[in-house]
Design a protein around this nucleic acid. Structure first.
Length: 148
DNA sequence: GCCAACGTTGGC
DNA sequence: GCCAACGTTGGC
């Protein structure tokens, strides 16, 4: 089971927009970068990803799940571009800021830090568990940890 | 709003 | 196939 991270500018497509789509989910369209697309091609149904607000917020605000594997991006006729569908799973009880990620030596190799401009990124399992812990979320049950 | 980083494009 | 020009992203 692989883990991922999606970035979005909250004024274009924010966490509230994603949650409003509910279990239906929504296409993660508009990606025009080969690296990002290639990661989406690797994504499997049911895999989890962080939802990160770039530009404004600069924090991981929730968890999404892949609810459709890679398919053509409906926002273009160019068949090079594909996307997956994602649905909101839960909030991050305490959003994890970029600052906090950078301040944590265990997360020094995280793509969020090392590949700043990549909009769809892989997350290692250790990084996933660390970020969940920082956010007050139990990584196994995806429920808030007591006291948060 | 600035600017550094970096991906893409296109002329040669 | 190189590389300069250009556009975009995203933190600050």
């Amino acid at each position: 089971m692989a883990y991922w991270l999606f970035k979005s500018e909250p004024f274009k497509w924010g966490w509230d927009d994603q949650k409003a789509k509910g279990a239906l989910g929504e296409e993660w369209d508009g990606v025009r970068n080969y690296q990002a697309r290639n990661f989406m091609r690797e994504m499997k149904l049911g895999e989890k990803a962080f939802f990160y607000h770039s530009n404004k917020g600069l924090e991981i605000v929730g968890i999404v799940e892949i609810c459709a594997e890679a398919h053509p991006d409906s926002t273009t006729d160019d068949d090079r571009w594909e996307c997956v569908d994602v649905k909101a799973v839960c909030d991050m009880p305490k959003p994890v800021s970029l600052k906090a990620v950078k301040a944590n030596p265990k997360l020094a190799d995280m793509s969020l830090v090392t590949s700043m401009r990549l909009s769809v990124q892989p997350v290692k399992e250790v990084e996933w568990r660390e970020v969940c812990a920082m956010g007050g979320l139990d990584p196994d049950t995806l429920t808030p940890v007591d006291g948060h």
